[in-house]
């Protein structure tokens, strides 16, 4: 897709739903990097939702922050108000003439259209599919039935998805754990994403040098 890649990012048209922020400590040979994937935090108290004049971004019963592409009028007000800067605006149209490229698109995800805002949907299509399947078969969903695309593709298994209300779920357990922290909590947006502090074993480095705690 012509939307990602160095050149477009350089022109400030990054369209990734999840970007990986890097924070550095130390200098020269001793430089260390911490990676922090940043996507829509699905804030419970979402500042992007309150500002949209046409209710194009609303909360679902699952606790997701949803973007309704065909309601969006493109004021970009929500992007102004997202403190995590995770919203992406379609400034232009993508070429759709290439048949092969079209075949490569995921049919479950709404195709990008010019003039509207978009962002990480927490793979709502997978959630809905799993819920519909559970309703059909009558077998209740259990923790781990739904895996988001990022979770599935992460080789280090660094991402866990689950129902935070289900106290037994793996995600809820991690979110209660000692390493858990959220980002920009002082804004009281109550993000739905919890991060885990990086654990390192490097005796020569005093603690406090790391970012993100």
């Amino acid at each position: 897709m012509p939307c990602v890649g160095k050149d477009e990012v350089r022109r400030h048209r990054e369209m990734t739903w999840m970007r990986v922020d890097r924070y550095f400590t130390g200098e020269g040979d001793d430089t260390q990097a911490v990676h922090q994937p940043m996507m829509c935090q699905h804030c419970a108290n979402a500042p992007c939702e309150t500002v949209c004049p046409v209710l194009a971004t609303v909360h679902s019963t699952d606790g997701l922050n949803q973007q309704i592409y065909n309601r969006c009028v493109g004021t970009r007000y929500c992007a102004n108000n997202c403190p995590y800067k995770t919203r992406r605006f379609n400034w232009f149209d993508y070429p759709r003439a290439d048949e092969l490229q079209n075949l490569a698109l995921n049919p479950d995800v709404t195709v990008r259209s010019r003039g509207v805002m978009e962002k990480c949907s927490m793979c709502v299509q997978r959630i809905q599919e799993a819920k519909a399947e559970a309703a059909r078969t009558g077998v209740p969903l259990v923790d781990g039935d739904i895996r988001t695309a990022c979770q599935q593709s992460c080789p280090a298994d660094a991402i866990t998805f689950g129902d935070l209300h289900d106290t037994e779920s793996a995600a809820a357990g991690l979110a209660r754990g000692p390493r858990a922290y959220s980002i920009l909590t002082e804004l009281n947006v109550d993000p739905g994403v919890t991060y885990l502090a990086d654990v390192r074993n490097r005796p020569q480095h005093a603690s406090g040098e790391r970012h993100g705690q």
């Binding site: 004049p53 309601r71 969006c72 009028v73």
Partner: peptide
């Protein structure tokens, strides 16, 4: 507006 055609929404 990104989608002036949806002016009626607003």
């Amino acid at each position: 507006m990104g989608r002036p055609d949806r002016l009626l929404h607003i």
